[in-house]
């Protein structure tokens, strides 16, 4: 699974993208965020506030219960501020 981070998320986690291989039971967006939080204090801090974490799966906005799996491109980022 390919993870992309943008803006504050990229700065706090310290990289723009990484490839991860979570266990099979990590099958939803919510489970993935929980699993990432468990990877260390940097992730836990960057992903602490659910409302401040937006997720896109394969470049489409995804809710907490959306499915994720191997081969997906999952982006995590703060609320958007363009325009």
């Amino acid at each position: 699974m390919r993870l992309l981070y943008f803006a504050q998320m990229r700065q706090r986690i310290g990289c723009a993208e990484e490839t991860v291989d979570p266990p099979a039971e990590v099958a939803t967006v919510a489970a993935l965020i929980d699993w990432l939080r468990g990877r260390g204090p940097v992730y836990a801090a960057a992903l602490a506030d659910d409302r401040a974490v937006k997720v896109a799966v394969n470049q489409v906005f995804a809710r907490a219960d959306a499915a994720v799996g191997p081969g997906d491109e999952v982006a995590l980022f703060p609320p958007v501020t363009g325009g």
């Binding site: 896109a56 958007v80 501020t81």
Partner: peptide, 23 residues
């Protein structure tokens, strides 16, 4: 566009940088 397009703004001043908060 302002709420759905994935853009983020970083403001830069003489004393540092800060990400713009969503409104």
């Amino acid at each position: 566009l302002k709420t759905k397009a994935p853009f983020w703004k970083l403001e830069e001043t003489a004393t540092g940088s800060r990400w713009v908060d969503a409104q």
